[in-house]
Design a protein around this nucleic acid. Sequence first.
RNA 1: GCGCCCGUAGCUCAGCUGGAUAGAGCGCCGGACUACGAAUCCGUAGGUCGCAGGUUCGAAUCCUGCCGGGCGCGCCA
Length: 553
Amino acid sequence: MRKMIKTLVEGAFERLVEEKELPASKLKEGHLISVPKQEQHGDYASNLAMVMASVLKMPPRQIAEKLKGVLEENPDFEKIEVAGPGFLNFFFSDSFWHRRLVEIKEKGSTFGSTDTGQGKKVLVEFVSANPTGPLHVGHGRGAAVGDSLCRILKAAGFKVESEYYINDVGNQMNTLGRSVYLRYQEVLGREIEFPDECYKGEYIRDIAREIVEEYGDRFLDMDLDECLEFFTEKAVSKIFKGIKDDLDLFRVHFDNWFSERTLHDSGYVEETIAILMKKGIIYEKDGALWFRTSDFGDEKDRVVKRSNGVLTYFAADIAYHRHKVERGFDMLVDIWGADHHGYVPRVKAALKALGYEPERLNVLLVQLVNLLEGGKVKAMSTRAGEFVTLRQVLDDVGVDATRFIFLTRKCDSHLDFDLDVARKQSQENPVYYVQYAHARLCSVFATAADRGIELAPDSVDVSLLSDSEEIGLMKFLVRFPEVVAASATSLEPHRISYYLTELAGMLHKYYTKHRFIGDDPELTQARLLLAEVTKTVLRNGLELLGVEAPEKM
RNA sequence: GCGCCCGUAGCUCAGCUGGAUAGAGCGCCGGACUACGAAUCCGUAGGUCGCAGGUUCGAAUCCUGCCGGGCGCGCCA
């Protein structure tokens, strides 16, 4: 839509230059079409005249007047005004909007999709929680953002793959196995000493109990060394099954599950380090191998291989990101908890060192979630094993409310998740506000069907939709694809939620003021078409958030 | 100490990548069901956009410096 107007404005400008109405000059980048906040400033506005004023050495309003003269020849405009310092304000005719409405109806469930991404390949990596415990609420936020972003990017014409990186290597795996082993001993009546570094959560005991049920006491007298592998593997697979079940319930889908271990086993990590050593980017000091990250904007150099010969997590991560690029992705999106922000320069440095543009990597830092209940913050201590799991929240307030709340905030701001509000089924809880709008429209069609009325889209006289609320609704519906595209390119899923909330508001307002089904069959048909299209956009939008569009509530 | 993020109405947050008179919801107060769903709608009040400079036609938005809050600064993952 904006693109269309922009093309028109640029065309008018070039024609004026050709006709020598304006001094010969090139169009400056940076002019844009916007939607004015004030209705009296038109449906769309262009700032071209102001942007070009300094180049042309002419007053902006004078330039705008000339452009207006040319553009007015287009019958789609009802009027064009020159306003303020030199804005061009465009007012489209009602019939223009009527035609758009019919177009949206034809597009149906594909309305909102664009080719903005031009088939660029994107890899979105998110959650990637270590398989040492169940997902907590913070992971949930990352999961909602990542999954929704994938849906939005797809709609915007990107080719998207989602990926979960499994850190199945390192001390933590042994610690996990040891924790379960100790609890196993405990469950079978042994006195144990539970070290501080072990995982204290109750889920460890649950796993130990399950192992007792399945295998009895056969490991009771075995040394840890002998059965560590068994306990580790059992624990990981059980925890991982839990994580997958939670994500499934949360409607979060992954195309790939990428194991860190495979990078080590295949020698890919060592190979990557060898490449960087050859380039002189990795050097030896104090028996360890160091990466010259400081040459690439990081604060200091980082260890990739410790003096004991063990590769660090960072080493694997360098290799992992190299692997991502080599798989042919044009753009990488990593969604991390904000507490990992110090890591960003390091990974970007690694990409640069390998000869890839660091701009390819977009890291979304998702800020932490404060869980509130009764006006107080619920303590979240991983150390003590006391944290609220994603599953608990889902069982409590439901998938739709949880996803929507996570998706109505920019991810770089802290989020207060108020459980009391999330449980409420009212306007305080915007998810129901939007869903209710959809359910209400469904109910309109149910009533229509009861009365033997069916929408016949091909024979609707759309020109009957002339109330300001109707035109306003149509204008807003038309914007949807642009919102999706902007949401994709800015990597900000929350824009969809805000759009939908506003759309729902317009619908509710319209609903109280007008009746879809009335005495006039022609008008009823026209309004049912509007209802149908609104319903479609609500559904398409909710789909992008992974939230259901219920027929009844 | 250094780095990253945040600071907008009493509360929770938007603000379309620099546009015109800064917006929602909640909460407060007051209204609206004999009609397709009142999980809704309408109205009133509420602001020095943390503070101070700078950039320009124009700043909540960009740059600098402070103030306040959060998070990071391992041969951990």
